[in-house]
Computed example of a mutant assay.
Amino acid sequence: MTTVLEEATTFYGRQRRLTARAIGRIVALWGTRPPVDFDLWFAEHADALVEILTAAQESAVGQGFEYVGAALAAGGGAITPDADPVGDNLVGVAGDGRPLDTLMYGAVIHAKAAIAKAPDGADRNVVRRAWSENGVAALITRAQTAIADAGRVATGLGTAARPHTGYTRLLVGSSCSRCAVLAGRTYGSMTAFQRHPRCDCRHVPRHRSDLARSAVDVRSFFESLSTAEQDAKFTRAGAQAIRDGADPAQVVNARRGVAGLESAAGRVTSAERAAIASGRLRNSAVAGGRELATTSEAMTKRGRAFKTIARGDDVRRETEIKKGKRKRLMPEAIYEVAESRDEALRLLKLNGYLL
């Protein structure tokens, strides 16, 4: 019988190979020769880029749902979910709620910005480098993040849908210092997974009774790196402090927020909670003075989420969906505002992520 760690290692190996194949196709489509008109090229190829990325997200989501059941079974026994996650509603959208074509157009913006920053009289290869280097780098970051987020949300939903579960944060690949000090932390299933662009860290679903036994020694991770890698990930001064015996978490937390992992403080007011609970979101949702991630993806009459969300008896809500006025919360935003598992499950169902 496989162990939880073996299940996690196998799953994330599959996810990395899936991501590599998708990025290879996207980069090949982008090419190395810059088009005469960047915007015209993107208009002609956006559908193909989104198709590749959507297919990869669908596979990542399917693998994520399977992985949760296998990991929990390996860790002490299968747990029947209270609700079934809706895979289709996790696809076609970025982690921050943007449609995938809008996300990918950011690579064009980066390429244009590189050209604009070039000094007057720069060599004629500026345009080529802007397209094949700056543009490609932004393209890869966006594609990798979108696929990883889809897989992460799937594993998060699969865990949240089951009672008496939580997760441990697992380091995968080359991790930054903020991720390193979070590794091995145990969380309840309703706690959102903090991540940054190109973050490779993942969930390890666990039985609640087993979570306390799950740990990763951050210092062991630090000592597994070369001196140069330690300096790069923890800063030269920070790494030296750790080598001198300082607590890695304290060193990294002194620079809290640099990696963009921390959310702003603030409580959700009664009025804000009522708006979120009603499901009638417009342009954005604001809680405690900060904007929560919402998306209009799949919220048209023929959208993936429409049939799920409009299934209820609230005629006014259904009318708003048909008129394209509503937005739905991203799962991460739901975990942030929900004060109980029951409330989180209700909001996940209301926003079309669970049946």
Rank of each mutant, 00 (worst) to 15 (best):
L5V: 15
L5I: 10
E7Y: 02
A8H: 10
G13K: 10
L18N: 15
T19K: 02
A20M: 03
A20G: 09
R21P: 09
A22K: 12
I23V: 15
I26A: 11
A28W: 12
L29P: 08
L29D: 08
P35S: 07
W41V: 07
A43Q: 12
E44Y: 03
E44K: 06
E44L: 14
H45K: 14
H45R: 15
D47N: 07
E51P: 10
I52S: 12
A60G: 07
G64W: 12
E66V: 14
V68R: 08
A70V: 11
P81K: 13
P85Y: 12
V86E: 12
D88A: 14
N89Y: 04
N89I: 02
G92T: 09
V93G: 03
V93A: 03
G97I: 06
R98H: 09
R98W: 01
L100R: 13
G106H: 05
G106I: 06
A107S: 14
A113N: 10
A114N: 08
I115W: 00
D120Y: 11
G121D: 07
G121T: 07
N125R: 04
V126C: 02
V127L: 05
R128D: 08
R129G: 11
A130Y: 04
S132F: 12
E133N: 14
G135F: 01
V136A: 12
T141E: 13
A146L: 02
V153E: 08
V153H: 02
A154Y: 04
A154N: 08
T159E: 07
P163K: 02
R169N: 11
S174R: 14
S177Q: 15
L182Y: 05
R185E: 02
S189A: 07
H196P: 01
P197D: 02
R198K: 04
R198F: 04
C201Q: 07
P205C: 04
R206T: 08
R206P: 00
R208L: 14
D210I: 05
D210Q: 14
S214W: 13
R219M: 14
S220N: 15
L225Y: 03
A228W: 06
A228K: 15
Q230G: 00
R236I: 01
Q240L: 04
A241I: 00
G245I: 02
D247C: 13
P248W: 10
Q250M: 15
Q250E: 13
V251A: 00
V252I: 09
R255I: 00
V258T: 09
A259T: 06
E262Q: 12
S263D: 14
S263Q: 12
G266A: 11
R273A: 00
A274W: 02
A275H: 09
A277W: 01
A277I: 02
R280S: 05
R280F: 05
N283G: 12
A285P: 09
G288Q: 03
L292C: 04
S296R: 13
M299N: 09
M299Q: 07
K301I: 12
R302Q: 07
R311V: 05
G312H: 10
D313K: 15
D313E: 15
D313N: 14
R317D: 03
R317A: 09
R317S: 10
E318Q: 13
K323F: 03
L329P: 00
M330H: 09
P331G: 05
V337N: 01
A338R: 06
D342Q: 14
R346N: 06
L350G: 10
G352F: 02
L354C: 06
L354G: 13
L355T: 08
